[in-house]
C-alpha cells in the first residue's frame, strides 16, 4: 500500500499542464479533415465504441429493453452496421439489460458507487457495486469522491477505488473523474494517474450530469496520461469521454485525438469508448448518407 505522503508527492511531481497549450493542441487536431473512405471507417469504428447509455430516474424495464434492441441492431435496415460496445444503465436495471443482450456479445455496464455524486458511505458504494456485478454487469462505471480529491485527501480517493476494484471481481472498472468538477487540467492529470495506479481499467471523463462534461482538452490530457502510464508500467488503460458528444463530427474529433495522442493501439472498443445516447442516431444518419448518397430525416431512425 502507498502512504498519503507518497501518493501526494507522486501526483504533485507529474509535469504540469498548460491550459492554453492543451486547448490549442486539441483545437488544432479538431481541424483534421476526415472525408470519404476515412469517414466511413471512422463512423463504423465510432458506432462500435459507443456505450449506449440511459441514466434517468424514469428508466423502466421497457426503456432498457428498447435500448438493448437498438444496441444489438443499430440500423435494422442494414446488417452491415456494427453493434455497439456496451449498454450503460443504473444497477437496478442491469438484470433487464443482461437478459435482453444475452448472446449478443454486447457488454452491460452499470454505474455504481452512489452515481452521480458519489456522496455515500463506502459500505453503501460497495453494496451498490456488488449488486450490479451479481446482476451480471460486465463493466462498472464508478465515480470518485471529488470532495475528497479537492480537499486534498487523495488517499481516501485512492483507497475507495482499490476497494471498488476488489468488489468488481472480473468486471472491468471504469473510473469516472467528473472533470467538470475537478476544473483544472492539472487536476485531471493527477486524478487520471491516481485512478490508474489504484487499478482502474478505464478512466472516464464525466457522469453526464455535470456541465461541462467531456471536452477535447480534457480527453487529450487523459489520453496523454494513459500513454505515459503504459510507457512507465507496461499496463494499458482505456479512456472513455462521456456526455455532450452528440454528432458524428464530434465523435470523429475524438477518434483523431486518440489516433494522434495515445496512438492506434487505443483505437478499438477494448480501449476507447464513447459514452453517449443521441450520438448513435447521428452516426447512423451520416452512415446512411455515405452509403446511399442522400440524407434521410431523423424520423427514419428509432428514438429510444
Amino acid at each position: 500500500m502507498i502512504s498519503a505522503a507518497e501518493l501526494r508527492a507522486f501526483l504533485h511531481r507529474l509535469p504540469g499542464v498548460d491550459e492554453v497549450g492543451a486547448g490549442e493542441r486539441a483545437a488544432r487536431l479538431a481541424t483534421r479533415s476526415i472525408k470519404t473512405s476515412a469517414k466511413a471507417e471512422a463512423i463504423d469504428l465510432a458506432i462500435s465504441m459507443v456505450d449506449l447509455t440511459t441514466l434517468e430516474g424514469a428508466d423502466t424495464p421497457g426503456k432498457v429493453r428498447a435500448l438493448c434492441a437498438k444496441a444489438a441492431r443499430p440500423d435494422p435496415l442494414d446488417a452491415g452496421v456494427p453493434r455497439v460496445a456496451a449498454v450503460c444503465v443504473y444497477p437496478d436495471r442491469v438484470d433487464v439489460a443482461v437478459e435482453a443482450l444475452k448472446g449478443t456479445g454486447i457488454g452491460v455496464a452499470s454505474v455504481a458507487t452512489a452515481f452521480p455524486s458519489g456522496r455515500a458511505p463506502l459500505e453503501a458504494k460497495l453494496v451498490d457495486t456488488r449488486a450490479a456485478v451479481e446482476a451480471g454487469a460486465s463493466e462498472i462505471d464508478m465515480v470518485i469522491d471529488r470532495g475528497a480529491f479537492l480537499s486534498g485527501d487523495l488517499l481516501k480517493v485512492y483507497e475507495e477505488i482499490v476497494a471498488v476494484k476488489d468488489a468488481c471481481g472480473d468486471a472491468h472498472l471504469k473510473v469516472i473523474l467528473e472533470t467538470g468538477e475537478l476544473v483544472t487540467l492539472d487536476n485531471v492529470r493527477r486524478a487520471s494517474w491516481l485512478a490508474m495506479r489504484a487499478g482502474a481499467d478505464f478512466i472516464k471523463t464525466s457522469t453526464g450530469k455535470v456541465s461541462p462534461a467531456a471536452t477535447l482538452p480534457v480527453t487529450l490530457v487523459m489520453l496523454e496520461a494513459v500513454r505515459d502510464f503504459r510507457a512507465e508500467t507496461g499496463r494499458q488503460v482505456g479512456v472513455k469521454p462521456a456526455g455532450g458528444i452528440r454528432t458524428t463530427k464530434d465523435a470523429i474529433k475524438y477518434l483523431v485525438l486518440v489516433n494522434e495522442t495515445a496512438g492506434p493501439d487505443w483505437l478499438t472498443p477494448e480501449w476507447f469508448r464513447l459514452g453517449a445516447s443521441s450520438l448513435l442516431n447521428d452516426l447512423l444518419m451520416q452512415r446512411r448518407k455515405l452509403t446511399t448518397g442522400v440524407y434521410s430525416g431523423p424520423d427514419y431512425f428509432s428514438q429510444d
Binding site: 483534421r32 479533415s33 476515412a38 471507417e41 471512422a42 469504428l45 483523431v256 489516433n259 492506434p264 483505437l267
Partner: peptide, 9 residues
C-alpha cells in the same frame, strides 16, 4: 486499428 486519413485536398 490503423486510421488512415483519406486525401482531403
Amino acid at each position: 486499428m490503423v486510421f488512415e486519413y483519406a486525401p482531403a485536398p
